[in-house]
Design a protein around this nucleic acid. Structure first.
Lengths: 227, 227
DNA sequence: CGCTCCGTTGAAACGGTTCAACCCACGTGG
DNA sequence: CCACGTGGGTTGAACCGTTTCAACGGAGCG
């Protein structure tokens, strides 16, 4: 499959005429990243953004002591690095491939040029950024207003919503990564999972999690019930 | 001054032809809010967004126990509530006037219509949302990877950057509000200010803060030095 | 086989919050 | 004009959730 066909499938380019997609394809690059490989680093100058074709990437920051906070995971179809396309500063955070990942790199100047010509693309991008802002809002809420059990409960319910079998979840990331996503450390996450298990809220077997008591779990997520 | 003149001065509408601004002005509303008055609430259906003309507003969330996390303060020229213009969900957080505030309400449909016609406006809005995302990124970083002294130090240095007299700061919000912005409570903030005073980093007299040792303060902000 | 990575568990330490008391500046009403 | 209440800010002591440090078990892999 060539670049143009791949681009045409993306939600970002939905509703865009083929001719313009061809144009973008001409200046775009297909890139491959090995597991754990760096995609860009905080502060790097930015010449464009990325669209994930396959695999998974994370955007994160590290503290001075080495603790990692993951902002978001990106999978096939997602865009990353768009923020610095529209502001003249380097990347606000770093990104790395979580497994073997392929992505399309779209140069900044050509993309802006395309937006100027087609407002549909602009609206698509505005929708993407708005969604991202929503996610940040709930992340801030979780970090500041909820304790770790609340964050975990909220995350499990979030996963539950986007699954076919809403009570049988499979974590597609390691528990260490999950801890970094929830703003805590593996030890704490482990303890809380054990507690939730003993309280009959969930059942954990490796990366398989079954929700046993959704009602109470919801209350924990809201901070109405403590563990 | 009429609505159209006010709109024309906003960075959001920079570079936009007067005819289109007139059009927007026709469907916009001038609103006034008393100190403390609610502007919109989390989850409210959204029919448009707001531009602050004078005064100050805050966007925030409350925990189930009543703790407040302020996401951002907005002053004259800033827009708020744009996020839900581009996604079909209610407001992700609540907003209230921090003092007597006037704002222009711009209806969603007309604004989207205008974007469709003028890509300049789209690019302006993309720039605004991107900047907001950057702020969220540093907020998350602060909450998750820094301790309260680090957050305070970072905030003071941030204020210092945007002042004429970079070593003499005046807090324009109450310390209680500052605590809510930094993700902590007034008691903790007070203690840390005292500590920083005793360590010779700053000098606090009411809402006047003088930075005495910027170098060390920077290290505290980076987490390289503990208090 | 032995290494590394991930996850788990325990005990101690720490940062921050909670609760309570108190101070001060300010505005209001008697 | 003073008494009073109110809101913002400060301080102390107890408490609590989370992290830290250390040790250990198991799975996967060269």
């Amino acid at each position: 499959m060539n670049l143009a066909d791949r681009l045409a499938k993306l939600p970002l380019f939905k509703g865009l005429p083929a001719s313009q997609i061809q144009e973008i394809a001409k200046v775009s690059l297909l890139k491959k990243y090995a597991k754990g490989e760096n995609i860009f680093s905080e502060g790097d100058e930015n010449y464009g953004f990325y669209v994930i074709i396959s695999g998974r990437a994370k955007v994160f920051k590290l503290s001075s002591e080495g603790k990692e906070q993951i902002f978001h995971f990106f999978a096939a179809g997602d865009t990353l690095g768009e923020v610095s396309v529209f502001t003249d500063q380097g990347f606000p955070a770093s990104a790395a491939a979580d497994e073997e990942t392929t992505a399309i790199f779209i140069p900044r100047a050509s993309f802006i040029e395309l937006i100027r010509r087609d407002p549909t693309l602009a609206l698509n991008m505005l929708g993407i950024l708005s969604l991202r802002l929503r996610k940040f809002a709930t992340l801030v809420e979780d970090l500041s207003l909820k304790e770790v059990p609340g964050r975990l409960a909220a995350h499990l319910l979030y996963l539950s919503e986007k699954t076919y079998s809403p009570d049988d979840l499979r974590l597609d990331i390691s528990k260490t990564q999950l801890a970094a996503l929830l703003g805590t450390i593996p030890e704490t996450l482990s303890r809380i999972m054990t507690k939730m298990g003993k309280a009959g809220l969930i059942n954990v077997e490796g990366s398989l999690i079954r929700i046993l008591n959704e009602k109470t779990l919801t209350k924990v997520a809201r901070g109405e019930v403590k563990l």
